[in-house]
Amino acid sequence: MPGEITQRAGDLCAPDAQIQLSAQTQLEGWYGKFGFQRSGEDCDDDGIMHLPMIRAGQGIPA
């Protein structure tokens, strides 16, 4: 179900939209399945390690 929600959310964005999110570090590979790539260093968010990720829109380099 979370994968379906993530996929649907991305599908609702314009094709050229750049999507940014903050993912828990252990989910980096999971978000990678949806086209997201790491875009910076890990950071501590209230005791939980996160990393910034981005999914470039079609025709936009990551």
Rank of each mutant, 00 (worst) to 15 (best):
D45W: 12
F36H: 01
G40C: 10
Q24V: 07
Q24N: 03
D44T: 06
Q24G: 05
D42G: 06
L51H: 14
G10W: 00
F36C: 03
W30G: 07
M1P: 07
D46L: 09
E41T: 10
S22C: 08
Q20H: 14
H50M: 03
I5Y: 04
D44K: 13
T6L: 14
A9S: 14
D44V: 05
L21V: 03
T25L: 10
G29I: 07
M53G: 01
I54D: 02
P52S: 00
T6Y: 04
A56N: 03
G57P: 00
D42I: 11
W30T: 04
L27F: 15
A14N: 15
E4G: 10
L21N: 01
P52T: 06
Q20I: 08
Q7L: 12
T6Q: 13
P2G: 15
P52I: 05
S22E: 12
R38H: 03
G3M: 04
M49E: 12
A56C: 06
P61A: 08
L12Q: 11
P2A: 15
G32D: 09
R38N: 08
R8V: 01
R38I: 14
G29R: 15
D16I: 02
R8A: 13
D11L: 14
E41W: 06
G32E: 14
P15D: 12
A14E: 11
M1L: 11
D11T: 13
Q7C: 05
A56V: 00
K33D: 11
L21W: 03
I5G: 05
G59Y: 02
H50D: 02
R8D: 02
D16P: 01
P15R: 14
A23K: 14
I54W: 00
G59E: 01
K33V: 05
S39F: 02
R8W: 07
F36Y: 11
F34C: 04
E4R: 15
S22K: 11
T6R: 02
M1S: 09
I54S: 04
C13H: 10
P2D: 11
Q26Y: 15
A56S: 12
Q26R: 15
L51G: 09
G59V: 04
G40F: 12
M53C: 06
A23Y: 07
G35V: 01
R55D: 02
Q26A: 11
D16N: 11
G3N: 04
Q7I: 12
G40I: 13
M49L: 12
R38Q: 13
I54Y: 02
